[in-house]
């Protein structure tokens, strides 16, 4: 399953998508949990009883702001979360 967390508003579209098929048996040891400087990822058991990660509820409506520090303007050349996730399950839409 591709789970898209985020929103679209007047300023643009901000989604972090997680490909849970790549996430169920994580080969990176859940590196996203510590890779994100804001600790936005958490594990959960989904509706089909698989353990996967998701974006914490309190970040889902403010991603544009919360992720700003990791974008090129914040001095990063690659996103810490997508770099930590070696299976390539995490993607940003913007």
């Amino acid at each position: 399953m591709i789970a898209n967390y985020g929103y679209k508003d007047g300023s643009g579209e901000y989604y972090i998508s997680i490909d849970t098929d790549k996430c169920i048996n994580c080969e990176a040891g859940r590196a996203c949990l510590t890779g994100c400087p804001k600790g936005m990822f958490e594990t959960m058991t989904d509706d089909y009883d698989d353990e996967v990660v998701q974006i914490k509820q309190n970040f889902r409506r403010s991603l544009a702001y919360d992720c700003a520090g990791c974008k090129p303007a914040g001095g990063y050349t690659s996103l810490p979360c997508t770099t930590a996730c070696t299976p390539g399950a995490v993607k940003h839409s913007w």
Partner: peptide, 12 residues
Amino acid sequence: GKVTNFLMNDKC
């Protein structure tokens, strides 16, 4: 009926 892809918007 199993979900393969989803997105939600509840901000706006």
